[in-house]
Amino acid sequence: MKLKVADLIVEINILGELLLSRVQPYVYDGEKAADIVIEIPKRYYENKHKEFPHLSFEECEYLWSGSSFYEQLVDFDGLMLHSSCVEYEGKAYLFSARSGTGKSTHTHLWLEYLNGARIINDDKPAIRYIDGEFYAYGTPWSGKTDESENVGVPIAGIAFLERGENSIKRIPGILALKLFMEQTVRSVKKETMEKTLDLLGKILTEIPIYRLTCDMTEDAVKTSYNGMKV
C-alpha cells in the first residue's frame, strides 16, 4: 500500500495489525510514484522476533519498518531525531534525550499549560530541509503511543533535556553535534553517513540548539518556551 509521510510517497508491504493501525492517517491513494520503498520479507521480522523475544512479531515489524524509513530519509534531506516534538503557535519545538529522561513528560506539560499546543510526534519525528527551511513531521513511527499528526511544521528550536533545576542555554555546534549523534540514526554505510553529516552541519548552523534542565512543574514550561520562542 502507499503512504504519504513527511511529504514523501512511501510504498510499504504491511503484515500485522499494529503497523496497519498506525499508518491509517498516512494512507495515500494518489497517482504519484513512490520515493521510498519499504519491502521487507516476513522472515526478516521473524528473525528479529527470535533475536528480541520480548518484542512481539508485530512490534518487530513496526520498529524495523520505521528504521528502514528513517535510513532512506537521508536521500531526501531528512533525518530522525529521537525526541518528543510539540507544536505551538505554528512552530515546532523538539525535546531530545535518552529514553526515560522525561522528554515526553515535558511536552505533555506544554499541552497542559499552553492552550492550543499539540504533539507532532512523541518519539521519532522526521526532520526535513525543504526550500531553505527545516520542518518537523509526524510519522506513523512514534514510539509506544500513536501520538502523531500527519503535518509538517517549521522548527523553532531543538533542546537536549536533562533533569534538574529549570534553566536553558544555547550550546555550541560541536557539543550539539555530539548530543545529536547519540539520538539519531547512525549508518555504517559511508555514503549515507556523509549525507547525514552534511545535513547535521546545516541543522546546527540554522536551528538554535539548547541544553534544557528542567523539573515537572509549570515553571519548566515557562523556562523552555521563553528560552526557545522565536
Binding site: 555546534g173 560541536i174 553535534l177 549523534m181 559511508k190 553517513m193 553529516l197 552534511d198 552541519g201 546546527l204
Partner: peptide, 15 residues
C-alpha cells in the same frame, strides 16, 4: 569521514 561541521573538523567512523 572527515567533515567540517559548524566550524569544527570532526572525524566519524563508518563500516
Amino acid at each position: 569521514i572527515l567533515k567540517n561541521i559548524a566550524g569544527t573538523a570532526v572525524v566519524v567512523p563508518v563500516g
